[in-house]
């Protein structure tokens, strides 16, 4: 029996904070508070445990271990004091899956209208996975996919189905 294309694993214990602000003005203060470089357009920066993703021209997503959430929220509020900004804890609104394995790209290619050959490491792509919103980027060994908490079962199901053994996209 052939191997599955990739492991699909739900990841728990991550906090996510949405930051909306004028990045041109508040970027430096944010970078200092978070300790990560502000990502370029559609980029994601990381130090291994925390990541900072570019979501839109005035929105960033900070992903970090749950234990660091409250401190980060505090630091962000401080850094943005006096700025027109919005900081919101979204940790409970999201579902995270890691798709890892030699054919992880094939799994995503069955669900998202995205040219994965051109998805460089450090790029965060917002799109959809079949019928639900999703964003993904490369991690060592595969891709990390985030979606909504309410459709986590659906997202997990379509990812696992797409990873079934023997269904790789290489021509047969």
């Amino acid at each position: 029996m052939a191997e599955i294309l990739a492991q699909v694993a739900r990841i728990e214990g991550l906090a996510m904070i949405t930051i909306r602000a004028g990045l041109a003005r508040a970027g430096d203060a944010l970078a200092e508070a978070i300790g990560l470089a502000i990502p370029d357009r559609t980029g994601i920066t990381t130090d291994g445990t925390r990541s900072l993703g570019w979501m839109s021209p005035d929105e960033l997503l900070l992903i970090l271990p749950e234990a660091d959430r409250d401190e980060a929220l505090q630091l962000l509020e401080q850094a943005l004091a006096g700025e027109h900004a919005l900081v919101a804890d979204m940790s409970d609104a999201r579902a995270v899956f890691d798709v890892t394995g030699p054919h992880a790209d094939d799994v995503i290619a069955k669900l998202s209208p995205v040219d994965l050959a051109h998805l460089a490491p450090g790029t965060l792509r917002r799109s959809r996975a079949a019928q639900t919103a999703a964003a993904f980027w490369r991690i060592p060994g595969g891709l990390r996919v985030i979606g909504f908490r309410s459709t986590a079962d659906y997202l997990g199901l379509i990812l696992s189905e797409a990873a079934r053994p023997g269904t790789g996209l290489a021509p047969r």
Partner: peptide, 12 residues
């Protein structure tokens, strides 16, 4: 024009 992504109609 905001994120530079070439999106297909289903993403819009």
């Amino acid at each position: 024009p905001y994120c530079g992504v070439e999106a297909e109609e289903t993403e819009l």
